[in-house]
Amino acid sequence: NQASVVANQLIPINTALALVMMRSEVVTPVGIPAEDIPRLVSMQVNRAVPLGTTLMPDMVKGYA
């Protein structure tokens, strides 16, 4: 199964993503693939992302 990017902490709106904020986990539904974690670093989220939430492409500015 494909691992997705999951929030490792609460990520406030407009926060630039850092490695420590993300982990990979096999979840349903599938979100952003875990292999894209390096690409996500320094991109901003466009909403608050609670701990344990799967990151979806529409949550990250400039990802989709």
Rank of each mutant, 00 (worst) to 15 (best):
Q9V: 11
V45R: 00
V49Q: 02
A64C: 08
V30H: 12
A16G: 07
A18V: 12
E35S: 12
V27H: 03
V49P: 02
V49T: 04
M22P: 00
K61D: 08
L10A: 13
R47Y: 12
P50E: 14
S42A: 10
P33I: 14
L17Y: 00
V49A: 04
E25R: 08
E35Q: 13
K61E: 09
N14P: 00
L19N: 05
N14D: 11
A16M: 13
V6P: 01
I11C: 03
S24A: 14
V30M: 14
V49E: 02
G62H: 09
V5Q: 01
E25C: 07
G31M: 03
A7F: 03
M21D: 04
N8L: 06
L19A: 10
V27R: 09
S42G: 14
S24V: 11
R47C: 06
T28R: 04
L10P: 13
M43G: 02
E25A: 10
A64G: 09
P33S: 12
V27E: 02
L51M: 15
L51A: 15
L17E: 00
N1S: 15
V60I: 12
S24T: 12
G62W: 09
L40V: 05
V45T: 13
D36A: 09
E35M: 11
A48R: 13
N8G: 06
M59Y: 10
G52Q: 03
D58V: 08
P29F: 03
A3D: 07
T54H: 02
Q44D: 04
A16I: 15
I32V: 06
V60T: 02
R47V: 10
P12N: 07
A34Y: 12
R39N: 08
Y63W: 13
A7I: 05
A64I: 13
L55R: 00
L40Y: 01
L55A: 02
A3V: 09
T53F: 13
E25K: 11
S42M: 10
T15K: 05
P29T: 05
I11N: 01
L51W: 15
A64F: 07
M59V: 06
G31I: 02
M22A: 00
V20A: 15
T28G: 05
A7Q: 01
I37Y: 03
G52I: 03
N8R: 12
R23Q: 04
V45P: 01
S24M: 10
R23L: 04
I11K: 00
G52Y: 05
V45Y: 00
Q2N: 12
A34I: 07
L19H: 10
M56E: 07
S24D: 09
M21K: 02
R47W: 06
I32Q: 00
A64P: 11
T28W: 06
N8A: 14
S4A: 03
E35A: 10
D58T: 09
L19Y: 13
S24W: 11
V26I: 13
E25M: 10
V26G: 04
V20H: 13
R39L: 12
P38K: 14
P50Y: 15
D36N: 12
V41Y: 05
A64M: 11
N1C: 07
V41H: 04
T28Y: 14
V45E: 01
G52W: 04
A7M: 05
Y63M: 05
V26H: 10
L17K: 00
Q44L: 14
M21Y: 09
A16R: 11
V5E: 00
V6F: 02
D58Q: 10
I37A: 08
M59C: 05
M43I: 04
M59H: 08
I11H: 01
M56Y: 07
A3S: 09
V27W: 03
P12A: 10
V30D: 11
G31N: 01
V5T: 08
K61N: 15
V60A: 01
R47S: 07
R23D: 04
E35P: 07
Y63N: 04
L40I: 08
V5C: 10
L17W: 03
R23H: 05
D36I: 07
T53G: 08
V20T: 15
S4M: 02
I13W: 13
S24K: 10
S42F: 13
V27T: 12
V20W: 15
P38D: 08
M21Q: 05
A16C: 15
A34N: 05
M21H: 09
N8Y: 04
A7T: 14
G52T: 02
M21A: 04
M56A: 07
P29R: 04
V49K: 01
V30P: 15
P29A: 04
I32F: 02
V60W: 02
D36T: 07
M21L: 05
V6A: 02
G52F: 04
